[in-house]
Design a protein around this nucleic acid. Structure first.
Lengths: 243, 243
DNA sequence: AATCCTAATAGTGTCGACACTTTTGGGGTT
DNA sequence: AACCCCAAAAGTGTCGACACTATTAGGATT
């Protein structure tokens, strides 16, 4: 199931394939955070020359999954708690605006789509399935906002969020189904706001919904690192980790 | 005066130079909207090979200054009124969030910086100077938000906004100083909100400030195109075209 | 054994080349 | 004159090569 329409739909073929392969490998943890990404190595591994690999790395750097060190070397990015917060904040900014816009043009078909998605969430068998549906829902709202720039910006941080989420999954598969009901409930609430026809309500609800996700997994999944302060880790029961 | 620190500070040298050259050429109108951008031609023109040019074009496509047609060819992007609205909306989303955050950590030094900037605006001799100061002010707020992702996203639409603004300038140098006082006044109002210590006030004021800019130049500078409806073109006197 | 220096290795930045595709321009036809 | 077809020109996607730089490993020195 490849992403339906990447923001840069045009141009190239091999480079896009390499992007997808690398992205999958990174998100699945096969390429661990901090691991080196050498162009010749990847080129041989994928059976292509360095040129497409190089372009793919540039794309992934844009998406924040990969980091160009000062020395010129490339490696898989490592996410600290501060990164979680930044990503969530950026999502909040973009998706709140998207919610504001989409609320103004909300239709019955939109409600139907979200209801179907949320119903599927309630039946999701795995956490991976649940988070896929969650992402689909949010992508839908962003796309339906009708603002292509907003959508393009959102796409560039989408994968960072998935990466952060994936590291959370790996850290604690045990919590899998505790948050499910909470996630579903939060999405029902969000749907109501989007369908209310009140843009500001929609925007505020979306912001709260996403903030709930941060509270959840910033509390549980600080994969590192140096000195952060941040006292509040009280897990507010709003989203259950999936925005 | 090259941009101080591009978001992707690392990696390469030639490609970054080409990016700057091309960006300047596009923003100045030397490369007109819709004009073809062929890699071999540009490569020869800049005295480099195709590789850096190619990477530069990818970067500029990300920034929205350049468009990859479905055929694979590349050209300077053409902005329609819908694009103006999208860009402004995206800026509003990002900068409102930035304002919200920066208000929480606002210091006397920040106030001093903005006051100096606004004073310079009041004395600006040309529209170009005014808009440079305006951009500097907004960049300052975004950077001071402390969220690198937000800043990176903002950078990617910054140039689109400058491009839209540039086309406005070219269309009507005559209006040059009518809006200056309004711009300054709006920025004073923004500074007060940022320094108020109330995040929501800061966010709302920033949103209004930017919306004011849209009203101004969406009304005056629709460089084209097909059927848009949009009745309200009443020029609300809030910003004077520079957000 | 630990340290420093040096040589070998790996990697990036840039270039030119080639195959394939799209566009362009010219000539013939109606 | 307008239209269609074909050949030439231009452009992109991909590849391999080379120079320069950073890393690493090994060996000599203390």
């Amino acid at each position: 199931m490849p992403a339906p329409a990447p923001p840069s739909a045009s141009r190239k073929n091999l480079a896009r394939e390499v992007v997808q392969l690398l992205r999958t490998a990174i998100l699945s943890g096969k390429l661990p955070p901090g691991g080196a990404l050498a162009e010749p190595v990847l080129a041989e591994r994928f059976g292509v020359s360095r040129a497409p690999v190089r372009e793919a790395l540039i794309e992934l750097e844009r998406e924040g999954l990969v980091e160009f060190k000062a020395t010129g070397r490339t490696c898989v990015r490592t996410l600290a708690r501060k990164d979680f917060e930044e990503i969530t904040e950026a999502r909040s900014a973009l998706e709140s605006m998207a919610a504001r816009r989409v609320a103004a043009v909300w239709s019955a078909a939109d409600t139907a789509f979200l209801e179907k998605n949320i119903a599927a969430q309630a039946k999701a068998a795995t956490l991976g399935e649940l988070s896929r549906l969650d992402m689909e829902l949010h992508a839908y709202v962003v796309r339906r906002s009708g603002n292509d720039r907003l959508a393009a910006l959102w796409q560039t941080i989408r994968w960072q969020f998935e990466m952060a989420l994936a590291s959370t999954h790996r850290l604690q598969e045990s919590l899998v189904f505790q948050p499910r009901a909470i996630t579903v409930e939060s999405h029902r609430c969000l749907l109501a706001a989007l369908a209310s026809g009140r843009p500001e309500t929609a925007a505020k609800t979306m912001a709260a919904h996403i903030a709930g996700a941060l509270e959840w997994f910033a509390a549980d999944a600080p994969p590192d690192s140096s000195g952060q302060k941040r006292a509040r880790t009280k897990r507010r029961a709003t989203t259950g980790g999936l925005a």
